[in-house]
Design a protein around this nucleic acid. Structure first.
Lengths: 145, 145
DNA sequence: TAATACTTGACAAAATTAGTCCTGTTAATG
DNA sequence: CATTAACAGGACTAATTTTGTCAAGTATTA
């Protein structure tokens, strides 16, 4: 599973915000519209903030706004913001690195596949995705659950 | 993570057996050579057996042999034998299917990426992989841990 | 019949995922 | 300047999945 629950929530969230570029959302609103547990979404938004995808505004009248143009945010950006770099097989990571990987013919393949997936995810940016979304959605209805 | 521990073990196992096509292995031998917990490997070999990748021989002098030519076994075969079909996002599966997926612009992408990964894994077959493996391995040493 | 090996299902520990909650901080506003 | 609205961060918890283990059963050989 490359996309877990939190990444999926993050995508929904950025999708909604991309379709309303410039608007300030409070957590509760996004949570309601996208059927995401509110306190969990709070955590996810923190990650998106640290990644520079959204910007948080504290205090009364606060909330979250897009920090960048949706054209400059790819699916890969959001995926990595939430879960870090994609890993196909743990044996390729520093912590779980296989000692005898030199003998392993499959070892390089996991890298190759990772890069392939990354490249594909990088091709999708949220401006386009949100446009499709708006086109099929009815408008204000809580959609895309 | 597309490749978890058990799939990784399965790959090691099929790799070893592919390099010794025709030889009958007992679980203990594979486990030792590939540093896999023996009772866990037993489970994995059952899956490989049901998938028709290896054949089990019960009783004394029993063990496991390759059931097919390593040229006809791809990485995808082994991955699917252990973990079933690759899933990129659970929302695409029957059980966790998103109700309002019609509004979701990312929904089709998960399928697309899945197919891309499948296609790549299908390109690697064990005869070639095992050959590379033998080329770099020293021979009988427990390698490829 | 004794020994060898796989089969199956139940169980269990460890890790990860998913989510909650509480306390603190920041900003607006009357 | 007190109050209220909203996010920030860390500790905690529940559920699920992963990663195994074990014991009783079955098949085969000698």
């Amino acid at each position: 599973m490359i996309i877990n629950r939190d990444t999926d929530y993050a995508v929904r969230c950025v999708l909604l915000m991309s379709g309303n570029h410039g608007k300030t959302f409070v957590i509760g609103e996004i949570a309601k519209q996208k059927a995401i547990p509110e306190s969990f979404l709070a955590k996810i938004l923190q990650k998106l903030t640290r990644a520079g995808i959204v910007e948080s505004i504290r205090g009364a009248k606060g909330g979250f706004v897009m920090a960048k143009d949706p054209r400059d945010i790819t699916l890969l950006d959001v995926v990595e913001a939430i879960n870090g770099k994609i890993v196909i097989n743990k044996c390729t990571t520093a912590e779980d690195r296989c000692v005898l990987m030199h003998d392993c013919p499959t070892f390089p393949l996991w890298f190759e596949i990772k890069q392939m997936v990354e490249q594909r995810l990088r091709q999708y940016e949220f401006a386009t995705l949100a446009k499709k979304y708006e086109a099929s959605a009815t408008g204000k209805t809580p959609s895309g659950v």
